[in-house]
Design a binder for these strands. Structure first.
Lengths: 210, 210
DNA sequence: CATTCAATGTATGAGCCTCTCACATCAATC
DNA sequence: GATTGATGTGAGAGGCTCATACATTGAATG
């Protein structure tokens, strides 16, 4: 959306923040978070090394903005993928799997989305995850044993969330082999495990009482 | 075990690698991974900034060594904690919870133990996790439905692993509040979810077929 | 149109970090 | 006691983050 052609002929950029976020995602995709630097992002955007700091307080703020963009894309994927799944049970179970599949494609992106330091320091990131989870709440309510309260539904979602993230982490660190190759396999395993959780939390006197 | 007193009066240190790992864990505990630097570790060990590079190829190698130390401590905790649990089912379920509890105490340590980049680049870290998981394999075999093969046992352990790590991640990023405070609560929830998984994978025609 | 102003980008630089290389020091061996 | 290999030192190259002072510009105002 920059008003000028690439390489930029005007003094002002047009939409530097967005361009920086794009550059950041590019870099991370190519060389990982460790290889990312604000300076490099500036370079790719044809802008001086100091310019980014007009828009982002510090390095982490830029990373957080990029992570937010990733979470937006993930939600879009989710909406497309799961909308057509019929039963609430399957809908919940499917999420875990499609999450794993997305992780394989957005490799670098997920690394920042789940970077511990970032999430702790930038609540808006957690907020976005929470909104995402909220989309699933109605399904969770359908699924839990009748008579259970809201905590049961939330507990189920937390468990599913934990499960999915754990599989994603293991996938991305290459525990099962090349992420690209094993993604589908791991996704089905994640779905399977999710199904077990969903079924378990649906039983009458299930896990509600320890 | 340095042959000289703290502060060091001799030219040679005695056991610089170990001292650097200790310093690294200290630093990470105080200021997090982001605040860690090889230079700082060297400073705390009263050694020149270049000295660490005699023993560790680069920054990440030192971090990986520290992470390895963390994993060793975790295993020790596990052996103490779970040895006395009677049934295989409860043993497996308990692991998840005690893992969460350990995370609250070794906060910084877990951050590096699960740092995606590190694990991907340093297979010995994954290896150590794998050994840890192997300790649980016998319990997993006891638990799975009779007639299932080894894959079922491994699949269960993978699922438990994913679940535990996911809870740990959420705990450490403060999703549930101050990690110290909510640790116990989250631990019981993790245990509960783990119990559901264990039960589910123990059912005859359970999750083995999709 | 001319002017002014706030926003945005530039230039410069201080301070820190990673990692390298030549050199100093020491322990062990022969 | 001389040699040698391992370990630590000192100096420094190059890169990065971030602050500060300055330049440029589009938009609002008269």
């Amino acid at each position: 959306m920059a008003p000028t052609r690439r390489g930029r002929a005007t003094y002002h950029h047009g939409d530097l923040p967005a361009a920086l976020v794009r550059a950041t995602l590019e870099i991370i995709d190519e060389v990982g978070v460790r290889g990312f630097s604000v300076a490099e992002a500036a370079r790719r955007t044809c802008v001086s090394p100091g310019a980014p700091y007009r828009h982002f307080a510090d390095r982490d703020a830029l990373l957080a903005a990029a992570a937010l963009e990733v979470s937006r894309r993930l939600r879009a994927i989710y909406l497309e993928t799961v909308a057509e799944v019929g039963s609430a049970q399957e809908r919940l179970a499917t999420v875990a799997g499609s999450f794993v599949r997305a992780a394989a494609r957005y490799r670098g992106g997920l690394d920042i989305l789940f970077a511990p330091g970032l999430r702790a320091a930038h609540p808006e990131l957690q907020e976005s995850s929470r909104e995402f989870v909220a989309l699933l709440l109605p399904s969770a309510f359908e699924v839990i044993a009748p008579g259970e309260g809201a905590e049961a539904a939330v507990a189920l979602l937390d468990a599913l969330n934990a499960l999915a993230r754990g599989y994603v982490a293991q996938l991305l660190e290459g525990k099962f082999g090349d992420p690209e190759e094993v993604a589908e396999d791991v996704a089905t395993r994640a779905t399977r495990a999710a199904r077990v959780l969903v079924a378990g939390y649906g039983l009458p006197s299930g896990p509600a009482d320890g």
